[in-house]
């Protein structure tokens, strides 16, 4: 019958609306369901997953030595030329010329954190750091030189 169906429609419609309102009302009154993490306040306790890929860093030990031989394997592996290795020739004590790393230029603004350079590195000289706060006011600051000044290659790394 028309009128019965009409009234049924009205009531089932109102009921479905009330069900939705009950759900939002539940969350309105239950503040323990809030899942917000207050970012700048939790900086000290924020732990990134250890596999998180934030940026490429060249590992230096306490003697300011790294393991990069300047072989350019990472440069070749990088799909978008994020890494540029500039090499120089050191004179070894024996008087031989030896290729060594001069500058490890890293374009963070190009990097897509794909991890291919890390896989390619034969000496595990580079790794992914867990930093993520990369915002700067000037684009040029994102181009970094990863080897520290006066750092040199660790003994025995070939």
């Amino acid at each position: 019958m028309f009128i019965v169906k009409y009234i049924k429609d009205v009531f089932s419609g109102i009921k479905s609306l009330l069900v939705g309102m009950r759900r939002t009302g539940y969350y309105f009154t239950h503040h323990k369901e809030i899942i917000t993490e207050q970012y700048p306040d939790n900086r000290d306790t924020l732990v990134m997953a250890d596999r998180f890929k934030g940026e490429v860093v060249l590992l230096h030990d306490e003697n300011n030595e790294h393991a990069c031989t300047g072989c350019t394997a990472c440069e070749l592996a990088c799909p978008n030329a994020t890494i540029k290795i500039v090499t120089k020739f050191d004179i070894t004590p024996e008087g031989k010329k030896k290729k060594a790393l001069d500058k490890f230029v890293y374009h963070l603004e190009l990097c897509t954190m794909c991890n291919l350079c890390i896989i390619a590195c034969p000496t595990d000289a580079i790794k992914m750091a867990q930093t993520f706060e990369h915002s700067v006011y000037d684009r040029a600051e994102l181009t970094k030189i990863l080897n520290k000044p006066d750092s040199k290659i660790r003994e025995g790394v070939e």
């Binding site: 596999r51 998180f52 896989i119 992914m128």
Partner: peptide, 27 residues
């Protein structure tokens, strides 16, 4: 996303699969 980040290292563009398998074992 948390699960992805833990295993793959990224939240959205993971780059976890390589030809022949996976880049790393699962976490």
């Amino acid at each position: 996303n948390e699960i992805m980040e833990e295993t793959c290292g990224a939240r959205l563009t993971m780059n976890y699969y390589v030809p022949g398998g996976l880049r790393a074992d699962m976490h």
